[in-house]
C-alpha cells in the first residue's frame, strides 16, 4: 500500500489507450471519456440534491413555523433503529468505495465481494425501514389524511423509546395513562426494546413494572389533557398539525427509500457486469458512477437522521 496521494496527469496516457475497446467512437481518449462520465454524474447528483432540496424546504418551513409538531412527532421515531440504519448505510458506502478501489486495481474477486456486501447493506437498511414503517402503521400512523393514531400509542412510545430521563427532561412530556404500567430508569437502549415489546402487548397489560417512586412529576401543570389522574401523568397534547410531521417523514424517508431501491438495481447491474470481468484499471466508470450515486443516498440519510430522529 502506498500512502502518497497524487493526481494523475490528464492526457498523459493518450497513446496507451488510443485503441482501447472501451473507448466510444466520439471520444478521443479514455481520460476524456472518464472525466465526461464523472462530470455528467455530478450534474445528475446536483439535480438529485435539488429534488430532495424541495423536501428540505418543506421541512425547514414547517419546522420553523410549527416547531411543536416536530417536537411531538419525533417521539414516534426510534433513534436506535435510525442510528443502526445510519451505521448500515455508512458501512455500505465504505464497501462501495472499496469496490471502486478494487475495480481500479483489477481485483475481480474482491470487487464482487464488496458489491455483494453493499447490496446486503442496502437490504438491511430497507429491512429496518420496513420494521419502522410497519410499527407505525400498525398503530394508525399513516401519512396525511389517513393519520388516525391509536389513543395508546403515544404513551407507549414515550415510555419505551425515551425512558424515564428523557421524558422528565421534557417536563410536560411524560407518562402513562394506565395505572398498571409504569416506567423505569431504563437506559436509552433498554427502553427501546420495551417500546417494541409494549407495542405488541395490549397497552393495559404492560410488562414492565417499575417502582412508582421513580415516576417524576411533571414540573408544569397539565396541558390540555382530559381525565388526568395523579398516577397517570399527562401526555403532550397532540398539536393540530401533527399529521404534517408524518407526511413529511413519510415523504422524505419514502423518496429516500425509492432511491435506495434504484441504487440497489444499479449495484445489481454493476455486479452482473463484474461477474463477466468487464472492469479493470482502464475501465471502471460504471462502478465509479454507481458508487457516486450510492454515496449520495448515504449523504441524504446523513441529514435525514438528525433532522427527523434526533429532535430535542
Amino acid at each position: 500500500m502506498t500512502t502518497e496521494t497524487q493526481v494523475i496527469d490528464e492526457g498523459g496516457h493518450d497513446h496507451e489507450h488510443a485503441h482501447s475497446p472501451h473507448l466510444q467512437h466520439h471520444f478521443d481518449t479514455l481520460d476524456q471519456q472518464f472525466n465526461a462520465g464523472k462530470l455528467g454524474m455530478w450534474l445528475f447528483l446536483a439535480t438529485e440534491i435539488l429534488l430532495f432540496g424541495g423536501l428540505f424546504v418543506a421541512y425547514a418551513i414547517y419546522r420553523n413555523l410549527h416547531p411543536e409538531i416536530f417536537e411531538y412527532g419525533h417521539h414516534f421515531l426510534d433513534p436506535k433503529l435510525g442510528g443502526i440504519n445510519t451505521a448500515v448505510l455508512i458501512l455500505s458506502s465504505f464497501t462501495m468505495a472499496a469496490a471502486v478501489r478494487f475495480a481500479q486495481e483489477g481485483k475481480q474477486g474482491m470487487l464482487k465481494l464488496c458489491l455483494v456486501l453493499t447490496l446486503c447493506g442496502a437490504c438491511g437498511f430497507l429491512g429496518i425501514k420496513y420494521i419502522e414503517y410497519s410499527h407505525k402503521m400498525v398503530h394508525g400512523i399513516f401519512p396525511g389524511k389517513y393519520y388516525n393514531p391509536d389513543e395508546h400509542i403515544l404513551e407507549e412510545e414515550l415510555l419505551g423509546a425515551h425512558g424515564h430521563g428523557a421524558v422528565a427532561e421534557h417536563g410536560r412530556d411524560h407518562a402513562s395513562s394506565s395505572g398498571e404500567e409504569t416506567h423505569g430508569e431504563g437506559a436509552h437502549e433498554e427502553s427501546t426494546q420495551s417500546a417494541e415489546a409494549s407495542a405488541q402487548a395490549a397497552p393495559a397489560e404492560g410488562e414492565f413494572v417499575i417502582e412508582k417512586s421513580q415516576i417524576v412529576e411533571a414540573p408544569e401543570g397539565p396541558e390540555g389533557m382530559v381525565g388526568i389522574v395523579h398516577e397517570k401523568p399527562e401526555l403532550p397534547k397532540r398539536p393540530e398539525k401533527a399529521h404534517v410531521f408524518f407526511g413529511i417523514y413519510y415523504l422524505m424517508t419514502g423518496l429516500h427509500g425509492i432511491h435506495v431501491l434504484i441504487g440497489m438495481c444499479a449495484i445489481g447491474w454493476v455486479f452482473f457486469r463484474s461477474t463477466r470481468g468487464e472492469f479493470g484499471p482502464d475501465y471502471f466508470t460504471p462502478v465509479d458512477l454507481v458508487g457516486l450515486y450510492w454515496h449520495l443516498v448515504d449523504l441524504i440519510w446523513i441529514y435525514l437522521f438528525p433532522l427527523l430522529y434526533l429532535i430535542h
Binding site: T2, T3, T5, E16, A87, I90, R101, P281, D282, F305
Partner: peptide, 29 residues
C-alpha cells in the same frame, strides 16, 4: 510505482478510506 496503476482516475489510499469510515461512525455516535 503507484501500485502498477495505469488506468484513469485516482486510487484512494486504504488508510484514508478506513479513517473516514471510523470517523463517520464516531460522529454518528
Amino acid at each position: 510505482h503507484h501500485e502498477e496503476h495505469h488506468g484513469v482516475g485516482h486510487i484512494v489510499d486504504w488508510r484514508v478510506l478506513i479513517g473516514v469510515l471510523v470517523s463517520l461512525l464516531i460522529l454518528t455516535w
